[in-house]
Amino acid sequence: MELTLINQLEDAAWEKQLPLLEAIMARCEQVLRLEESYLVSLVIVDDEQIRAINRSYRKIDKPTDVISFALKDQEDDYEMMEGERELGDIFINVDALKRQAEAYGHSEEREFGFLFTHGLLHLCGYDHMSEEQEREMFALQEQIIDAIIKR
């Protein structure tokens, strides 16, 4: 996978996490047995920015930790045109990331990796709308992230 990082906050700390993100993408390719290399965009935002996105696209007027916009949802009938390899966009809210890392008692790096993995799995067609889907997706998240960042 290839990554485009868009740092809306211009905080260089997040750009230093590129090796982590690359390791997660490589592990995701391995675990999901992806045969092609895809493009993914990651946008770093704060509470205010993600709240506006959440309100606009999901009609939920509050901030969230991560939102993914897949270019191809499972329900879509279209196929990617030849040469198109872009999966979609992941937006990570670093304000929520910091709060959650503290609440869960682990590093910001692990929370960042977890949120990125979660968003990446959504782009690959996984969801957690039912208990069965949630078990499958969360097991994959742990399989990917635990191999890279220990608890």
Rank of each mutant, 00 (worst) to 15 (best):
D77M: 09
I53D: 06
F114Y: 14
L5I: 15
R85M: 10
I44R: 02
N93Y: 04
R135L: 01
L20I: 06
Q74F: 07
I145M: 12
Q141G: 08
K16Y: 10
G88V: 11
I144H: 05
I145S: 06
L18E: 14
T64C: 13
D89E: 14
D95H: 14
D46V: 04
F91G: 06
L71T: 07
D61W: 05
Q17E: 15
A70F: 02
L5Y: 09
F114L: 13
N93H: 02
I92R: 03
Y38N: 01
D77L: 13
V66R: 00
E142M: 01
Q17T: 10
H122C: 04
A139Q: 12
I50H: 08
Y78W: 09
R110L: 01
A12E: 15
Q49M: 15
G119H: 06
L18Q: 15
P19Q: 12
E109C: 02
E109D: 09
E2W: 10
L140V: 05
I144W: 00
G125N: 11
L115K: 04
S130P: 01
L121D: 09
E108T: 07
V66M: 14
E136K: 14
E131P: 11
D127E: 11
E10L: 12
I144C: 01
A13H: 11
D61E: 13
E108L: 03
